[in-house]
Every structure is written in C-alpha cells, then in structure tokens.
Computed example of a mutant assay.
Amino acid sequence: MTNHRLRVMWFVPPTIAVAASWQEDVGLSLEASRTQSSDEQFAALSDGRVDAVVTSMDNVFHWNHRPGPKDFVIVAQIEATTPLSIVAAPRIKSVSDLGGAKILVDAPENGFVIALRAMLKQAGLRLPDYTLAPVGGVKERYAALVAGEGDATLLGPPFDALAIKEGMHKVAEVQASYPEFPGQGLVVRKPSLSSNPGIRLWLKSLVEALVQLPANLEKLRNSLSSEGLPDEAVSAMLQSVPVSLIPDERGVNLLIEHRRLLGLIGSDATYGQVVYLG
C-alpha cells in the first residue's frame, strides 16, 4: 500500500492533532515541524518545503497579496477559537495603557495581531501610538516578554499562564471583545489538494478523532497534563477543540471586518474566496 507523505508545520501541536495521532493512519506518513514565525510558514509553503501549515486564518488574506504563488486556501478550522490574551508588564492595567508601548508580535500586518490592533483602535490607539516589534511565534514572544524585551504581547495557552506565573499581568482577552474570533486553520496551496492525497487523508483522520473524542476526553486531558502544562492551560486547550472542521463563516467574516477597520489589504476578500471545501 502506498504511504502518502504529508509535511505539516505548526507553532505548537493542535489539540485535535494530538488526539488524531493515536490512530493508525493507514497510508499516511505525517512529518510535523515547529515554526518560529508565520513568515517562515509562508516561505516554506511557497517553495514546497511543507505541504500544509496550521496557522492563523487571517494570514491567508495577507499571503495572497504578497509576492508569491497567491493560491493559499483554508481547508479546515483546527480550533473552535484560539484563546488569546494581551499579557503585559504589571504596570499596564488596561488596553488604553498601551499607548507608547513596545508590543511584541509575530508579524505586524497579518495573523493574530490584527485582532489586537482592532482592540487598540477601539481604545483610541493606532499606529504610531504604539510600536510593533516582530520577534516570532508564541514561544518566542513569551520568552521575549518575560526577559523584558517588550511591554506586552498576545499569548495563548499554555504560555499566557506561564507568563503570569513569571509576574506578568493579563490585560484583556480577545474573546471578550470578539466572541466569534476563530481558531487556527489548516492552510495549503490549492493545487496541492489534487497532487497530494496526504492532505485529505489527514483531514479524514482529524474528523475521525473528533467523532471519537467524547470517549477519549480523559485520555486527552492526561496526555496534555503529562507535558507539564498548567491545569488552566489544559482546560483551555480542550475547550478549543472544534465541533466541526468546516471554517466558521462568522469567524472568517470577523477577520475580514478587522482588516476593513484597519484599512489593510485583503479586506475585499470573501469567505468563498479563501475557504475551499471541495
């Protein structure tokens, strides 16, 4: 039997992927690698070093306007939402206190930072009232924040809880401002859907994991806890598991609305242009 290869790149292993890894994937060889930034993911997809990435769905709007293949599509929503908090030095108590702050980000014009910029604008702040300093993915931002290299950043579990244990302060939660904020998606180049059967095989494995998850919930909790994650982080990760892999239309449209609010490229896109379910 042919063993189809799928190279996927992510920041941290998604919770549903952990559950799917328990299955015997007949005909699928999954090779996962960790990324340090969305720019690295863009480059790796563009030049064919990887076949798929798990990333903020907002990235697709920007990537399809950058010099490159311009054929990126979202084929699944891997998380119901990505729990995100603005975590900052203790002196910063509210979003409005971020005026003049150095905010650590992955990339300034795409990804989760767009929701943060929308929150800042609604608090009366806009560039150049604050500085965006690219330092990399969530692990890199966590390390830079606790090292005092910036004033604030966006963090999700488990790094938000770890930063708070290091003396940082939670300023606000993205989900409190935007309840429909969507989680990460599985992004590929559209031509690869017909050339690489591994993509559909992994999607099938993820769907089967969702079906079997209710009977394996405690196993999943124990698996995450065994990695030394705080209990609050494990609970947040379990709650992030989606009901369906179909990207939520309200969530995708929220991302488009944020881009429109900030006057960024990609705000003229539609759900049907960036999501491919064929």
Rank of each mutant, 00 (worst) to 15 (best):
D268L: 10
P182N: 13
A118G: 08
L125N: 00
V26K: 13
G278C: 08
V188F: 09
Q239S: 12
S94D: 13
V252L: 04
D51M: 02
P242V: 02
V207A: 15
D51I: 00
G183M: 10
V18C: 07
I92Y: 14
F61V: 06
L229R: 08
A20N: 08
A215V: 06
L104F: 07
P182E: 15
E218W: 11
A172K: 02
R200F: 06
W202K: 00
D268M: 10
K190G: 00
A143D: 14
T270I: 11
K165V: 03
D106V: 03
F11G: 12
Y130H: 02
V171L: 09
L220F: 09
L145N: 09
S46D: 11
G136Q: 01
R66E: 14
Q239K: 12
R5C: 11
Q77L: 07
G198C: 08
A88M: 04
L255W: 04
Y276V: 14
L201K: 10
Q122P: 00
N110H: 14
V135Y: 08
G124M: 12
W22M: 09
P214C: 12
I256K: 10
G156H: 04
V146D: 09
H169D: 05
L220W: 11
P230Q: 07
G150I: 07
T35R: 02
R49A: 10
I74N: 01
G27R: 01
A76M: 07
L6F: 04
L132D: 06
V252H: 07
P134K: 01
V234G: 09
A133W: 01
L28V: 11
M168I: 07
S192F: 03
E249V: 12
A101K: 00
